[in-house]
Structure formats: structure tokens, C-alpha cells
């Protein structure tokens, strides 16, 4: 696979085409999310913040990026 190829992932409940070759860290940077302000779940596994660069994004991955919002 060349690095220009697109893969489809499910990101926060929506299908998205992204460039092949991303790690979680680089994906967050691409979508302009501060990695320290969120928690990331990759295929239902919660990732350590200091290990985002260790996880490659693959075709069909499900990624959830969550944070705290107002609630009771």
C-alpha cells in the first residue's frame, strides 16, 4: 500500500476516509485535537496518552475521541 492510499475508519460515529499511515497521534494532530485534552479509545481499548504514537490506524478501525462536557 502506498502512503497516499485512503482507508476508511469510523471516527466518533462517522465513517471517514483518511490517508493510510497515520498513528493515533498523527491523526489527532491532523484533525487539530489537543491529545492532552481528550481520551482516545481504539477498537474499544483505551489508550495511554503517552503511547498514541505507538498505535497505527488501520482500515476499519473504530476510534472514539471523548472529553468532559457539562453534566449532572
Amino acid at each position: 500500500m502506498s502512503s497516499a492510499e485512503q482507508i476508511q475508519v469510523r471516527l466518533n460515529g462517522k465513517d471517514r476516509d483518511i490517508t493510510f499511515g497515520h498513528t493515533v497521534q498523527s491523526l489527532l494532530e491532523t484533525i487539530e485535537i489537543n491529545p492532552l485534552a481528550v481520551v482516545v479509545e481504539l477498537n474499544k481499548q483505551i489508550l495511554d496518552r503517552d503511547r498514541y504514537s505507538d498505535f497505527d490506524i488501520r482500515e476499519g478501525d473504530t476510534i472514539e475521541v471523548v472529553h468532559f462536557v457539562g453534566g449532572g
Partner: peptide, 19 residues
């Protein structure tokens, strides 16, 4: 104070990050 856990709105239609 209580807070809830929700998806980040990647389309940024809302400014909701409580912190």
C-alpha cells in the same frame, strides 16, 4: 462538581469542552 463524558464534536459546531 460533576461532569459527563461525551464524544468530541469534530465538526466544532459546539464549544462544549467543560475544562
Amino acid at each position: 462538581v460533576t461532569v459527563a463524558v461525551r464524544r468530541v464534536d469534530l465538526d466544532r459546531t459546539r464549544e462544549e469542552a467543560i475544562l
